[in-house]
Design a protein around this nucleic acid. Structure first.
Lengths: 102, 102
DNA sequence: CTTTCACATCATCGCTCGCTGATACCAGCG
DNA sequence: CGCTGGTATCAGCGAGCGATGATGTGAAAG
């Protein structure tokens, strides 16, 4: 048990627009055009965010002709879920574990 | 099933120092002095972060003499864990659910 | 009461990072 | 080939936010 959460992934998901993108991609696999429609953001802006999500290993790209589809990698989300569950369990166990005042 | 994650909580945890603080508090209940020692951050800086964590409902304060102890609220972490688990499940189910190119 | 120490608040600085516009790239289609 | 449309990359701007220093408050210790 490591009882910690990957700071990089959380940091990437900390941006509201990126979290929105992830939520959308959890429902269906979409390409940039769809995401532009859904979010109202500019294509450039979206492409930048997709790059961040890709480099963080949160999404995968699947070229389809001249379109680029983005698919969520569920393992990442599952990992986060487990890490937070561990943290929660640890926090519950350590509730009364007070370090003495110096 | 809402299949989304609270953006505010994630945003707050997106900061590396705050995530570190949460990780430390998952092991034991600490006061500001302890956190200063553990993280090496200045007291002012830490106090600011604790205010953010408090306002986000992630930690609770427990005054003890002139010390202030901080305790994690495990429900928040449990909620996050469940929300990410939902997202992961939804992502797995929607893997082949591609929207047609316009 | 005075001092000391833990902690919070405030104002300010500085830098990161998200947003934008311009541009380049690539794949289909005529 | 030339054109169109989808997408990525790059440079620059500007707001947001994290870090700092000065200062205030409140509680114990002397």
């Amino acid at each position: 048990m490591l009882t910690s959460v990957d700071p990089d992934v959380i940091r990437v998901l900390g941006d509201p627009l990126r979290l929105r993108i992830v939520t959308l991609l959890a429902r269906e696999t979409l390409c940039t055009t769809h995401l532009v429609e859904e979010t109202g953001a500019r294509q450039t802006n979206l492409s930048n965010h997709m790059k961040v999500l890709r480099e963080a290993g949160i999404v995968e790209t699947e070229p389809c002709g001249r379109y680029t589809y983005y698919r969520l990698k569920p393992e990442i989300l599952t990992g986060l879920s487990e890490q937070f569950a561990e943290l929660a369990a640890s926090a519950r166990a350590a509730a009364e574990n007070k370090r003495a005042c110096p």
